[in-house]
Amino acid sequence: MVHNKIKAGLRDGIPIAAGYFSVSFTFGMLAVQDGISPFHAVLISLLNLTSAGQFAGLTVILSGASLLEMALTQLVINIRYALMSVSLSQKLDHSVKSFQRMLIAYGNTDEIFAVASSKPGSVGSRYMYGLILLPVVGWVGGTLAGAVASTLLPAAVISALGVALYGMFIAIVVPVAKESRQVLMVTGTALVLSAAFYYLPVLREISSGFTIIICTIGAAGIGAALFPVKEEKV
């Protein structure tokens, strides 16, 4: 069975678009608050379509780090998409051509991947275009709205909103860590490593971009070596 109706894709994309609007609203706000112009913030959202990567990218830009650091940070933070793309390549119908795969790849976010994977059988290019369109509109529109709102809000509100993304990250990690002892160990390792790189002499001289890379590879690597995950969970 092939899912290839553009309308079905659009319908499935509505809840994703709504969620993206509120998340990217925060991104637009943070970016402008950090001195990025609303136009550049919107351009980042349109070209990247990823939350954690954009957030980290913002940090890299602000710290004035090298382009190599930017490339490595994005590589490490977004490497999970490589696994999703491998998985999605098995899910796409054989009728989907290479250039169509190149278009679909742009929209392979966590949520779009999750929805496409949940369909029984295979998915076609028209369904995927429909599924991707509204989340992109939500993501870019939210960024613009947040960027504009940020110029209107008082400093006290902006300080409070600065923790919104951290709150979201915690909401992603903690429930899984609660259920899985393995994820809890990986999270704990990352937390200890990250604190060490922040507070300890010598280690704290290392830029935040590289710190994130080292902590991620370290904690995920230790997790993979000690607790390899069973097939169905990955």
């Binding site: 992603i172 994820v183 990986v186």
Partner: peptide, 13 residues
């Protein structure tokens, strides 16, 4: 497994 653990390690860090 390494790829599976990456988002959690990264978001925490």
């Amino acid at each position: 497994s390494f790829l599976y653990y990456i988002p959690y390690a990264c978001l925490t860090a």
